[in-house]
């Protein structure tokens, strides 16, 4: 097997700006192959966005402490100098955000922003860059792209802005696209269009995608593999199919069960995970999920966090009692 395109080992991110240091990410290891789409899912404060930002070194360097290593396409991201880092961002890795209005510059037309971005990275003429911008707009399926290149971000609707931001991110032909909740703010009928667009780009351009979301449904539409995060750690990682069919970590099981879905009995109660996510500045000893876990035993509350257990089919779960969640042991949870 060849080396993975993205290789993250023991990534730790601690924010030191506040009164108490907050360990937002506590030892994340993740591999992503070329052309693979991986979703990081989790609730607010689970560390999914921080993990993704670390790949582009976007976390504030003065107020955070970062450990571990990140390699992307042969670059050692932690060791990149300022100039190499600027090249790396854009040409190797690009990012799209939840709110395009904050990521796009309001005083330039979209065409100007894209051509400027291309010309900053590559020695091409203005006309050439413009032609490429037009191609990109066609690529992301913006109707009447010629005219749209000359409009300003505020003149476009939410879905079109999101497409324009994706076009801008693709301007320098990156190989890895980081997507931070790109469809959360969109309406249902528009969300599905953008999700399908991402999938299409992955297939046609061979893009690797890391997709951060709290919405399992959106993750399933785009991702080949899903990593579930809880309190700064990946607690389960599996192919989308395996995860949805037979989740193995108690947190994933609870999360899938607690969703209101399909034709449920009226007035029925949802299975809930009791309690609330832990305070990252004050994590419990042992497994961070133990206080809310239906399977937790005394051993879960002791000592170190549970190790990552390798399971059949190349999947992993960070749980001491994972043998109790085997489909034969508890029956396949409904989905």
């Amino acid at each position: 097997m060849t080396d993975p395109y993205v290789r993250i080992r023991d990534l730790g991110v601690t924010f030191t700006g506040g009164a108490k240091p907050v360990r937002a990410v506590g030892g994340v290891s993740l591999d992503i192959r070329e052309g693979e789409a991986v979703a990081l899912i989790g609730e607010s404060g689970s560390g999914k966005s921080v993990t993704m930002r670390a790949i582009m070194r976007l976390n504030p360097e003065k107020r955070s402490r970062i450990e571990g290593s990140i390699h992307v396409g042969g670059h050692d991201v932690m060791k990149l100098g300022a100039r190499r880092l600027a090249r790396f961002r854009g040409a190797e890795v690009a990012m799209i955000f939840q709110e395009p209005l904050l990521a796009l510059d309001p005083v330039y037309t979209l065409g100007a922003q894209i051509t400027e971005s291309i010309r900053r990275h590559e020695p091409v003429s203005r006309a050439e860059a413009r032609a490429r911008a037009l191609q990109l707009f066609e690529r992301v399926r913006i109707p009447s792209p010629e005219r749209r290149l000359d409009s300003y971000p505020h003149e476009m609707s939410g879905g079109m802005r999101q497409r324009a931001m994706i076009a801008l991110a693709l301007a320098c032909r990156p190989k890895l696209l980081l997507a931070d909740e790109p469809t959360t703010a969109l309406d249902a009928t528009v969300q599905i269009q953008v999700l399908l667009l991402l999938r299409e780009l992955q297939r046609d351009l061979g893009l690797s995608i890391i997709f951060v979301t709290h919405d399992i449904g959106a993750a399933v539409e785009v991702a080949d593999r899903i990593a579930v995060m809880y309190a700064g750690r990946i607690v389960e990682e599996a192919s989308a199919r395996d995860l949805m069919r037979a989740p193995r970590h108690p947190y994933t099981i609870g999360l899938l069960k607690s969703r209101a879905h399909g034709a449920m009995v009226k007035g029925a109660r949802l299975d809930t995970i009791p309690g609330a996510p832990p305070d990252l500045a004050n994590l419990p000893a042992g497994c961070a999920f133990a206080p809310r876990c239906f399977l937790a035993a005394d051993s879960c509350r002791r000592d170190d966090p549970p190790p990552l257990v390798a399971l059949d089919g190349g999947r992993t779960a960070r749980c001491l009692r994972v043998e109790h969640t085997h489909p034969d042991a508890i029956g396949t949870p409904a989905h």
């Binding site: 609707s157 599905i192 399908l196 949805m244 989905h335």
Partner: peptide
């Protein structure tokens, strides 16, 4: 009908293939 079929399928084997509607809601 379009709104309902815009809901993510939740099934990795039967993912949505075609968006039911194109474009955004009008202003």
């Amino acid at each position: 009908a379009a709104l309902l079929s815009s809901m993510p399928s939740m099934d990795p084997d039967h993912r949505t293939e075609e968006p039911p509607l194109a474009g955004d809601p009008p202003n």
